[in-house]
């Protein structure tokens, strides 16, 4: 019994090492090819600016529901674009190399972790630029930021999986979008509702059950990705 326990612990430890190494690799790769990262950051900024100009508002006069909806749509599109490249960035030879040295489970976990950070950075940047040009109506900041974190986890676990699927199918942008949008909608709807509550500064108890549901959906999607990814990776 004890032996079994120690064995499991050892395996977990090994996997953790693998995951940390892979996340580091992702970050290093991203840092070396700065254009991809900078490109997506610029994408967020210019989209926000285009929305600002199309609405033609002068600082802060946009209605709160509109603010909320626009913000989330921009984050959705940027996240899809940012994560879509996670399986095409590397050529097939290098993927074969990872296939030999790492288990598929650690690969998907490390990609999800890395993409969560990326999506979080994007949404924070989007939030910053949005606040500057359109005004910041949010009354409950910690709640809003917690919501951003949870949504980033959900978006990245869903999008990482979908991008691996789309990667097998020739990886065009249309496929990525049509496969991921319907799956992202439950997460997006909850995120919009929670952030509406946070903007209005409602009592936190109101959002509690929604946050729990969001956590549960994240859990379901992450678990399904974890279970299904090995099948994609092997083919």
């Amino acid at each position: 019994m004890l032996r079994y326990f120690i064995n499991t612990l050892y395996l977990c430890h090994q996997m953790l090492d693998e995951i940390i190494a892979l996340v580091k690799k992702e970050a290093t790769l991203e840092w070396r090819q700065k254009y991809a990262l900078n490109g997506i950051l610029l994408y967020v900024i210019s989209t926000v600016y285009i929305t600002y100009l199309s609405i033609g508002v002068k600082g802060g006069t946009v209605q709160i529901p509109t603010w909320n909806a626009l913000y989330w749509i921009i984050i959705l599109f940027s996240a899809v674009n940012a994560v879509a490249k996670s399986f095409i960035q590397e050529n097939s030879g290098r993927q074969l190399y990872y296939y030999m040295i790492a288990s598929p489970e650690s690969i998907i976990i490390s990609k999800i972790l890395y993409n969560t950070c990326l999506t979080l950075v994007l949404s924070l940047l989007g939030y910053l630029v949005f606040s500057v040009v359109m005004g910041n109506p949010v009354q409950d900041q910690p709640m809003f930021l917690l919501n951003l974190l949870l949504t980033s986890i959900g978006f990245s676990s869903c999008l990482t999986m979908v991008s691996s699927i789309a990667g097998k199918a020739g990886n065009n942008g249309t496929l990525m979008a049509i496969l991921s949008f319907p799956i992202l909608i439950p997460i997006l709807l909850l995120a919009i509702q929670i952030s509406k509550n946070a903007i209005d500064g409602l009592d936190r108890g109101v959002s509690l059950d929604k946050i729990i549901t969001l956590l549960a959906i994240n859990g379901v999607i992450a678990a399904t990705s974890y279970l299904l990814f090995p099948f994609i990776w092997k083919s």
């Binding site: 869903c158 999986m161 799956i183 909850l190 059950d209 549901t213 959906i217 999607i221 994609i232 083919s235």
Partner: peptide, 29 residues
């Protein structure tokens, strides 16, 4: 074979997202 495997993976993934969508979310609103 590729088609069968990848679409099986996607359909399971979509089902996992579809069930909360129709059974849980409508009850919250």
């Amino acid at each position: 074979f590729q088609r069968a495997k990848i679409s099986a993976v996607y359909s399971i993934f979509a089902y996992a997202a579809f069930i909360p969508l129709i059974f849980i979310l409508p009850r919250l609103t």
